[in-house]
């Protein structure tokens, strides 16, 4: 159980991110939740690569034990892709705000339903 403590931390962060993602209706807060979810995945990859007594994977004659470099490489690219997708999501949020005047999911849905209802009402007399 002690050996799996790090996974518990990861799962806690993941659940918190997931909860923000589902429960908050604000689009920007949803994106923050998504980035927390992402960081929990970083931990999930990096933690098993650590070896106690090892050093960072930079080869030097003084050290013999190094942590595993492979997850570092994978996560390095994931972080940069993560910020690029975050920016794309924010751009979408800004466009939604311009189109609907709001970034709250409930208000957007309500407006959509209202538009559909009026369209249906306009079509019926014909």
């Amino acid at each position: 159980m002690i050996g799996h403590f790090s996974y518990i931390v990861t799962v806690f962060l993941m659940v918190a991110g997931l909860y923000i993602l589902i429960a908050c209706s604000n689009l920007i807060k949803k994106l923050v939740g998504l980035s927390i979810f992402q960081t929990s995945v970083y931990l999930l990859y990096i933690v098993p690569g650590k070896l106690v007594g090892g050093t960072a994977p930079i080869i030097s004659p003084q050290y013999t034990v190094y942590s595993n470099p492979l997850p570092h490489v994978l996560i390095l690219t994931a972080i940069v892709v993560g910020v690029a997708t975050l920016a794309l999501g924010l751009a979408l949020a800004v466009r939604i705000r311009e189109a609907y005047g709001s970034i709250e999911e409930d208000e957007i849905l309500a407006r959509d339903h209202a538009v559909i209802a009026t369209e249906a009402a306009n079509e019926e007399p014909l």
Binding site: Y42, G49, P71, H72, I75, L76, I79
Partner: peptide, 13 residues
């Protein structure tokens, strides 16, 4: 956790 490159990226990004 010895992931210095990742830490640097996380701090700046």
């Amino acid at each position: 956790l010895d992931a210095v490159d990742v830490a640097m990226t996380e701090a700046s990004v």
